[in-house]
Design a protein around this nucleic acid. Structure first.
Length: 264
DNA sequence: CTATGATGGAAAC
DNA sequence: TTTCCCTCATAGC
């Protein structure tokens, strides 16, 4: 589930496993052999939006982007015999981690790291993530708010689930422009995104429904975790209207045409 | 068991 | 606009 919360969770987890330790790396798949050979230690791990950056000391940084398919596994003791396309394997401090299917796995120098951070918008999960750049940028745009939320240079870390759910919770029509939404609602959207993302870091899953809108109390079942995401054709949890879907910014958007009315 | 689509984004057309 | 990464959860048989 790689939206921003997944990467921040991984950063904390991998920092706990490897930060401050010598690490041996290889690439059983062979696509990152030269880069892996330069990894000797990991000093720190951080997430920025959906990107992971490992501070390696002298060689610079390891930059990883999971994309849609990328996945990490880890464990303690000696690593298992690599099976299939293992792009990167890290071993150190009594633990191992295995990366497969990532969009990006490469070494960065300071300049490349700087370029990446410069092109990303504020990340609601980071201490340095400020609302103002998001509000200003989105507030001047005539693009639909559902597209702006997917633009990593506007806000970093939001993906297709969080965009649909945050817009539902804000009762915002996804096709309204950022300019039309206005600064106050944009600030509220930012604040809610921060709440939702933080909850995602804590729990490791995306749950956006409020208790009152779930069928039962107690444990949140998977099909009750969202208001509109992947619920096309099903009744809106609040008003019963059929949830709609359309492709926006290259991905399937979901929304309730009544709760998220254009007039609001 | 197999088939399908997906939480992303860069590169190739 | 399409392809790719080549994983994984879910749906359906």
């Amino acid at each position: 589930m790689p939206e921003g919360h997944t990467l921040h969770r991984l950063a904390v987890h991998h920092a706990g496993l490897f930060a401050g330790h010598e690490v041996h790396a290889d690439s059983p798949q062979g696509r990152f052999t030269a880069g892996a050979a330069r990894i000797q230690q990991i000093d720190a791990v951080e997430a920025y939006g959906k990107h992971l950056l490992y501070d390696l000391g002298e060689p610079g940084y390891l930059h990883i982007h999971l994309g849609l398919y990328g996945t990490f596994r880890d464990g303690v003791g000696s690593p298992p015999e690599p099976r299939g396309a293992v792009r990167l394997r890290l071993v150190g401090n009594g633990s191992w981690a295995e990366l497969r299917g990532a969009t990006a796995c490469e070494l960065y120098d300071d300049d490349q790291r700087g370029l990446l951070c410069d092109r990303l918008g504020p990340d609601p999960l980071r201490a340095d993530g400020k609302a103002a750049p998001f509000v200003v940028r989105a507030g001047h745009s005539r693009a639909p708010i559902a597209g702006l939320l997917m633009d990593q240079s506007v806000v970093a870390g939001v993906g297709n689930v969080f965009r649909a759910e945050a817009l539902y919770r804000a009762r915002l029509d996804p096709y309204r422009s950022g300019r039309d939404v206005g600064d106050d609602a944009l600030l509220a959207l930012w604040t809610d995104l921060r709440i939702l993302l933080r909850a995602g870091v804590r729990s490791g899953r995306i749950v956006t429904t409020r208790p009152a809108d779930r069928d039962h109390g107690g444990r949140v079942t998977r099909d009750q975790a969202h208001y509109v995401y992947r619920r096309a054709g099903l009744p809106c949890r609040v008003c019963g209207t059929e949830v709609r879907t359309a492709v926006l910014a290259g991905r399937n958007l979901f929304w309730c045409p009544v709760c998220q009315s254009p007039a609001e």
